[in-house]
Design a protein around this nucleic acid. Sequence first.
RNA 1: GGCGCGGUGGUGGAAUUGGUAGACACGCUAGUCUUAGGAACUAGUGCCGCAAGGUGUGAGAGUUCGAGUCUCUCCCGCGCCACCA
Length: 966
Amino acid sequence: MRRYNPKELEPKWQKKWEEQQLYAAYENPDKPKRYVLEYFPYPSGSAMHVGHVRNYTIGDAIARFYRMRGHNVLHPMGWDAFGLPAENYAIKNNISPHQAIEENTTRFKHQLTQMGFSYDWDREINSSDPTYYKWTQWMFLLLFKKGLAYQKESLQWWCETDKTVLANEQVEAGKCWRCGNEVTKKSLNQWFFKITDYADRLIDDLEGLDWSESIKSMQRNWIGRSHGAEISFPVQDSDEVIDVFTTRPDTLFGATFMVLAPEHPLVKKLTTRDQKSNVDAYIKQAQAKSDVERQDTDREKTGVFTGAFAINPINDEPIPIWIADYVVYGYGTGAIMAVPGHDERDFAFAKKFDIPVRFVIEPTYGEKQGDETFKKSVFVVVRNPKDNTVIVLDWGPRQERHGGNMLIGGGVEDSEDYVTAAKREIAEETGYTNFKLVKESEFLGHGYFYSNTKHKNMQVSGRGLLFDLVDDTRGDTALDEGEKEKFKVTWQPIDKVASELDDGIHEAMYRYLVLDEPYTGEGVMVNSGEYDGKSSEQAREQIVSGLEKKKIAKSKLQYKIRDWLISRQRYWGAPIPIIHCGSCGPVPVPEDQLPVKLPEVETYQPTGDGKSPLARVSSFLKTDCPGCDGPAERETDTMDGFACSSWYFLRFADPHNDDQPFDPSMAKFWLPVDDYIGGAEHAVMHLLYARMWTKVLYDEGYISFDEPFKALRNQGMILAPDGRKMSKSWDNVIAPDDLIDKGYGADSIRLMELFIGPWDQSASWSIEGLGGVYRFLQRTWTLTQEYLASKKSDEEVHAAAETKESLQRLLHKTIHKVSEDLQNMSFNTAIAAMMEYVNQLYKLKAAQSGFVPTDAWQETLSTLAKLLAPFAPHIAEELWQELGNEASIHLEAWPSYDPKLLVEDTVTIVVQVNGKVRANIDASADANKQDIIEQAKTHERVQAHLEGKEPKKTVVVPGRLVNFVI
RNA sequence: GGCGCGGUGGUGGAAUUGGUAGACACGCUAGUCUUAGGAACUAGUGCCGCAAGGUGUGAGAGUUCGAGUCUCUCCCGCGCCACCA
């Protein structure tokens, strides 16, 4: 009998498939199309490990499944060869990028081939090839002509290690996405793509996409749209105006100062003579801080007064203008109106610099019912400074409009002031008598609730007061017997209380009195002139529309996303197709002169002087202006590698086109991508850029869809067996090549990648687990070989109808399960189902001591091979052909199942007594309820638990269970 | 702090509309066979218990004949964002 030897049979089939062009994609309109795409790799590392391989295994299983189901599948592969990853690899290994790409793509392609992935290699693309980047440059010119590419001198992220500027998206927590070193800022003249023009569409169109919620939210987060208003504050005794952006125009009356970012251009103009030295010193100090330092939220607020004042346009009040580094220049207008009463940062700043705080919104909580009885009230916190605890009244479980954890509270009598009332309430409700007033809230709180003691709807409005316990002298409470039981007096640690309080007013008061936090929520307007009494939501609209008429304010959407900076001061990228002419300015390279080829150079190392190495190549640099024929210079920066990957999925539809980036009819045929598979690391880089370019092409009429990737599948990471990320520095990298060498074979690796757990969850690689799936393949192999051996012995076989039927039932059940699971991408359970199936086949074989009848076994084993084909294509093909088939299994139709064979004649019914399983009985599938109940009752274990009693109630779920309730 | 995703044996993980919790695999235990090898095969394996039985899906409550699954409260872990006005 032949031994299972993947080392021999896998390369054999890989070669045959290649010769037969088995996986070539054709535009056949008779079949439904399916475009399955995995992120194309940077050929940057020395090799791929089993973590990378998972991505392609998932894609290949999907591609093969749909191919067998009669779809016209496009499953291409290429190389993201331009850009930092590839060039840094070359620098590190001291070779030219050309050579690095050549070597790495060869190695990667070999790795992919030996894994047996079904790519149409005829469509292979390489983004560093002139036939490709010609069209990347064409795309640049398209953006340029649309006014979506522009040049600007500005301060940008600069990576000193990689010696280039970076886009915002490419800086993660102040570190370069490639080398992980801290970035600095540098001012250079740079090219940008105007992605901000697409911000709204990039957010809104997420809605209809089949993407994970987490990626969508990352993109929304990144684009950072917030709704608010821009308001102009005139500067006192000056013609200057300070514009601010705020999401809370309703707090305008509470603005008691303004803050400009230290970099704000108005700072120099506004600063008065006597403040100049302070301001200059502060600016200098702010500049010295790294951006990472500046973003540290826990830092204490710093800032200085400019000496100037602005006029609050809503009430003409002069308010001081400060500068502080908690205001960032890049967002909004780089200036804010500061409302310390209703913003935590402004509050902290105001406290530190003794700036007045004005409260203009009072918290409200609860629904107003309309029939409330009004009561002037107090909300009282009693603190024990000795152990930092406070009194919380526990009114029992929180019900709809009463109960829960509360502060001390109560009504204020006509003869009392707030303090007197509060003292009385403390004594009455808790018995404590010796305490002193510490703080009283300047604002009121308004609560609407149902009083459980008075049995009616109440409105309470009043102040919050904080008392410190002097000693724990405690007299009797003044409660009726009935009242006493309604709540308990408890002492709780100070820092735990706020979120436990069940009433919004109590919480707001507590936060202000004890935690020193301002009120940032919604509420009712006060100290706001004509807006007093309105809700803050209402006032927000009305204040803006009122000022809008006077042209002082306008409602505005503000975004965090910045334009995409695409210039790179590096050699290894697509040259930006622009010529700078002294008289014509920046002129696009005429389309017929594309590509602007990357010149061969002796040294390509980045210079670090803010210019790309191309600036040293005079033959490249010097050219004639296409406009006026005068002497001119080429742009020497290259494009961000992410530009190349922003349209590659389109090129796969028509990879050899010399006249266009792609034929629109081809794009129309294949796109959008149906299944896009890759890691989550591109959430806000590639995926955002590619969506933008797609929208540009859509707007220009080149394509008929405006989202490139219908479904996005982010596979989970494969970790090393030690649970850490695979990395050379940890020395825990597992390469598929080694496993293949050891004899496991690509099929086992592929199976393991999927069986290890749900495809979208990360998992640690397990060599023992790999042994498990290998054993499964071997068992499948041996079963088939034994069958073939018995067939050849030419014995007379007796077709036992009963066995045939059980084989068929088992088979159709398995087809059903594997098909459903594949459809739902439940690869791990699909594989489990096949394992179970093979285990059962072994048992059946043993039970009948051999393979009878032959024809049913032939069908069983051939179909098993088909089910295995998307996962383990080599062994599936080998067994298929050994079973006597000529054509490739991968051209076969996916097996279908007969629903009739899924229905069992007899079913196992669970018998429960009081919900606990007591017995299993077998009953025919169509038995009626009464029969089943009778049958269940007679079971001895059931009888023991029924104890001779008649069930109070009997629940029957047909075909599943009987439950007797006694 | 905000948003998103999770929590099931020794381990990775299974469980249609609520209906036998732990499929499948790893590991472990015992056995069979063997050129005694980290092979193959057979049986067992949530926990407590000799057993009958009890108990069990992060914790607590609720709905239900019945809850891993639904509702509420809380705890823990991971990811992303965060002085963004």
